[in-house]
């Protein structure tokens, strides 16, 4: 699979929220730490439900965490 076309700022937001660990975020949103790592590396595109739980954990709107990647060459 090609790299996910959804970019995210999860790693930066974790650090801006008291250096929250990957495990803490995983526990808050109800997923495994492995999934958080893959999300941060943009190797996995979350479901809408997980994306919304992540934005809720940071208390920010969806577009502050996720954005659609620009297509190459545009």
């Amino acid at each position: 699979m090609a790299r996910a076309e959804i970019r995210n700022r999860i790693r930066r937001l974790r650090f801006e929220h008291g250096e929250m660990t990957q495990q803490e975020l995983a526990d808050r949103v109800g997923c495994t730490r492995q999934t958080i790592i893959l999300l941060e590396q943009e190797r996995y595109v979350p479901s809408l439900a997980l994306a919304l739980r992540i934005t809720r954990a940071f208390g920010v709107p969806v577009e502050s965490v996720f954005e659609l990647a620009e297509e190459e060459g545009t």
């Binding site: 699979m1 090609a2 495994t32 790592i37 590396q41």
Partner: peptide, 19 residues
């Protein structure tokens, strides 16, 4: 399963309980 791009060096995935 579609193949995922390899992770950058130094990034390791901890095994999940199911794994």
């Amino acid at each position: 399963q579609p193949a995922r791009e390899p992770l950058p060096e130094g990034v390791e995935l901890p095994a999940t309980a199911r794994q």
